[in-house]
């Protein structure tokens, strides 16, 4: 699968994509989530929030 990074518009190639998979854009380094395989689509991966519970 080859598609565009939503952050920098660079090209991201993924050999065997799976929905939900987290990948890194080779051009800008941002982490991306595969939100669709057909048609291919990437979104910025969820950010990490802090929570004080235990």
């Amino acid at each position: 699968m080859e598609t565009e990074c939503p952050e920098c518009a660079g090209t991201v190639s993924i050999a065997a994509p799976e929905k939900g998979e987290i990948v890194e854009c080779p051009e800008c380094g941002v982490e991306l989530e595969v939100v669709s395989v057909s048609p291919p689509a990437l979104a910025l991966a969820p950010e990490e929030e802090e929570d004080w519970g235990e």
């Binding site: 939900g20 987290i22 989530e33 969820p46 950010e47 990490e48 929030e49 519970g53 235990e54």
Partner: peptide, 23 residues
């Protein structure tokens, strides 16, 4: 992690990641 993200999205929600300051 990929499986959780897929499954949460199937409930029409945007999944979130958390880091806990507790243990």
């Amino acid at each position: 992690v990929a499986s959780f993200l897929r499954s949460i999205r199937l409930e029409d929600a945007n999944p979130r990641f958390k880091l806990k300051t507790g243990t």
